[in-house]
Design a protein around this nucleic acid. Structure first.
Lengths: 240, 240
DNA sequence: ACAAAAGTGTTGGAGATACACCCATGA
DNA sequence: TCATGGGTGTATCTCCAACACTTTTGT
């Protein structure tokens, strides 16, 4: 084989984590804290999607789980890889390069990002704690502003992937609290599908699911007729 | 940031190229020729999917196009990225390692494969020529045997991806010759979907496509009633 | 005339859509 | 008693699936 120079690049793993609370679809974002040594040239710190470069000691999967452990405390059950971001211009601007040097690596190697999205029940995870050097926050997806690098694009693509997956997986099982009302479930579907649904038709549709269980229990403390609570009968499904 | 060792890996780009001929779905495979210096420890050379490591001088896209140029002579119009193969065991066996050292790189770094599939009109490409050090052949997908590394898995995943995409893209437009009969089109759909279709229902379905044009032309030299020929009205579609 | 594939419509059923009123609770 | 969201059934329409015979050509 002729002599040739193989590309020297880094791999990053990024995971868009979705949660649901108070009738809003939320995404987990990381705000880095400026380091004490103060070498930082970035004025206003933009938030990022949880992620990191893959380390020499780990596989892709291990890297993904390390990231989730760090920011969520544990790995969610629902994880799906959805895209590769390899556009050379994804880390072009000076601010992006500063951010990357500061929080990821001093190398200037190109980075190819492998991206997953995760669905979590927000009450089972408590990332509101501040971890070392970073703060995790849940933000309404409608209120996300400028993120670092191409993370807005990654988020956008994750949402569109989630939308496509809406009818293929039991999204509600993964993201709703253990007990929920049918209106909550419908609201979740409406947010993800980005369209209004007819209440009666929606109920006909979801009542075909045989893993949806009606409980002998009702909402409490609401200003109207209390809704019946439901839960999912959790059956493990295989993801690819 | 603490000191930490970033993973040192290589990226490979692999492209499963599908063609259609004589009522058979075909895939382009590469048979490497043993090099003259004879350092090869591999007895029977297995075929591989066209691909290569990404080089330092190129982007992912450039790498993909270099590979397609080398084996096809040109880049197909339809290209879709479909998966990332990063399982550490994908290059585990001794034969795999030998093959990789011989034809890809002497490094023993882990390789993450980014995979595309392509659809081509076989009569517009002529890869039957022998390029330097390798021979390209079209093989009926039903007759593919052992490939190198995890390329059987990559092919299998490509086929299942193609199957899922069958109803979302005009597969026939990309892969059939310019003029074709409705029976050819139906046969193509049947091979990909792996099920028999009803002729009348199929025609009802595909005649909804407004980019399918009936020609004033018929098949020639067949032993039965000659079929009408059709073509697609090519309208550029955007892939993601 | 025969062999071989081309070409062509209708019907029934399932599933999706559209739509409006009464109910239970807390304030 | 009022405000709020919870809960329910029917009629229509659209789409899909099943199904068989006639036509045109070459030999």
């Amino acid at each position: 084989m002729e002599k040739r120079k193989i590309a020297d690049i880094n791999i990053s793993v990024e995971c868009v984590v979705f949660g649901y609370d108070n009738n809003r679809l939320k995404v987990l974002l990381i705000e880095q804290k400026p380091p004490p040594n103060g070498q930082l040239s970035i004025d206003s710190l933009q938030a990022s999607i949880p992620g990191d470069l893959m380390l020499a000691s780990e596989s892709i999967d291990q890297c993904l789980h390390r990231i989730l452990k760090e920011y969520l405390g544990a790995a969610p059950e629902f994880l799906k890889q959805f895209h590769v971001f390899a556009n050379p211009s994804r880390m072009k601007g000076l601010i992006d390069k500063d951010w990357h040097r500061q929080f990821r690596s001093h190398h200037d190697k190109p980075v190819i990002a492998l991206t997953w999205y995760a669905l979590v029940q927000m009450n089972n995870f408590n990332p509101e704690i501040e971890s070392v050097g970073a703060k995790a926050i849940w933000l309404d997806i409608a209120k996300v502003e400028d993120l670092v690098l191409d993370h807005n694009l990654i988020l956008k693509k994750a949402i569109s992937e989630l939308r496509e997956d809406l009818l293929h997986y039991d999204i509600g099982l993964e993201i709703l609290p253990d007990k929920f009302t049918l209106s909550q479930l419908q609201n979740l579907y409406e947010i993800i599908a980005d369209e209004q649904l007819d209440k009666r038709n929606f109920r006909k549709m979801i009542k075909k699911m045989d893993n949806l269980i009606a409980l002998n229990e009702k909402q409490q403390g609401v200003l109207h007729k209390p809704a019946q609570l439901f839960r999912y009968n959790k059956v493990k499904k295989e993801l690819m």
